[in-house]
């Protein structure tokens, strides 16, 4: 799972800004996000509704429809190629090929009138120009690879004849047909039961080990992060508020938001103690607070947080937080829980 720091950078995102120009104003859904993904690693992007994590994922493949727009000055480079200046055709050829995506709701991501085998085979036909026969064989092989029992028969089934877990496996099979270098999985287990979630996470891990696929896993569940991630981005208010290796993040979270999330989670074995909460809710993306976007929910906020927006800065080596007080000794009250 762990990757040496020197590993090849596969995807590089710099100052990504995706704004939605709506009647209610400009929603700055993603607002200055920068990160790298290295070959073969799992990067988890964690955040709540409205944090901008899904829009970030869609932006990587330029899947943003008006009124949304990736603002000028954003930079996305994949395998050294600048995706912002690439033509629509070039990006289309990347999708499902070098970069694949898996969505949260497997039912709506599959076409109900085609068999799952047809849908997996179609990917091979589009990108590989494979013959009908070869594509079908490849589809059956992929279904077998993602752990679908009796794949030859299952390939002839329609999506509605399968369970949610099986459908998610089909989507993963579709994503893996072209052996992508990068797999973007947007909440792939959120709609699934916990035992099925365990199966899917296991599958993603084994796929990665076997093919060296890099994975961007988008989730709201810190438990999933701990299980799957090598490195983590914590998003809030359209920005990355903390970036760290998974061990460092859980061992010493630096941003007050991350700390709050970890404390707000009920854990097995904890008993019925009162949960610590983060007051308030995520503000709408049309009206982020001035200065630090977390300040009106933050227990540590002081006057500087209102005046001055903090930068994402390294607190210790390769552990960065977007907070004025990160890295400075905290008042005892805020540090204890």
């Amino acid at each position: 799972m762990s990757t040496p720091d020197s590993a090849r950078v596969l995807l590089s995102v710099e100052n990504l800004r995706t704004w939605f120009h709506t009647r209610d104003g400009v929603a700055r859904a993603v607002d200055g996000v920068s990160f790298d993904v290295r070959a073969g690693e799992t990067l988890c992007v964690v955040g709540e509704s409205g944090s901008g994590k899904s829009v970030t994922a869609l932006s990587l493949l330029r899947l943003i429809d008006p009124p949304g727009r990736i603002e000028p000055g954003s930079r996305i480079a994949f395998e050294g190629r600048d995706l912002m200046t690439a033509t629509e055709e070039e990006v289309r050829r990347l999708r499902g090929n070098r970069i694949a995506m898996v969505f949260q709701e497997p039912m709506s991501a599959l076409n109900p009138v085609f068999t799952v085998g047809d849908q997996v085979a179609e990917v091979a036909r589009i990108h590989d120009g494979a013959s009908r026969r070869a594509a079908w064989d490849r589809a059956v092989e992929m279904l077998s690879l993602v752990g679908i029992p009796d794949p030859a028969a299952r390939a002839r089934q329609y999506p509605h004849e399968m369970s949610g877990g099986m459908r998610q496996r089909v989507l993963i099979a579709m994503a893996l047909v072209m052996n992508p270098a990068l797999l973007i999985a947007d909440e792939p287990t959120t709609a699934l039961d916990v035992t099925i979630q365990a199966q899917i996470l296991e599958l993603l891990t084994s796929v990665q080990e076997r093919f060296g696929t890099a994975i961007i896993l988008i989730t709201h569940d810190l438990g999933v992060v701990a299980e799957a991630a090598d490195r983590v981005l914590v998003m809030y208010g359209g920005q990355v508020v903390e970036r760290a290796a998974v061990r460092d993040l859980f061992a010493s979270p630096q941003h007050p938001y991350t700390q709050g999330l970890l404390r707000a989670m009920p854990r097995v074995g904890q008993g019925r103690d009162r949960l610590l909460t983060i007051p308030g809710t995520v503000p709408p993306p049309t009206a982020w607070p001035s200065g630090c976007r977390f300040r009106d929910r933050c227990p540590l906020a002081f006057d500087r947080c209102e005046r001055e927006a903090p930068e994402l800065t390294n607190v210790v080596a390769s552990h960065a937080a977007r907070c004025h007080v990160a890295g400075t000794p905290l008042p005892a009250a805020a540090a204890s829980s």
Binding site: Q197, A198, L222, G223, A226, F250, L262, R267, V268
Partner: peptide
């Protein structure tokens, strides 16, 4: 099985 499937927010475990 249910209990073992819960993801635990602790990467050391």
């Amino acid at each position: 099985a249910l209990l073992s499937a819960i993801p635990v927010p602790d990467p050391e475990r």
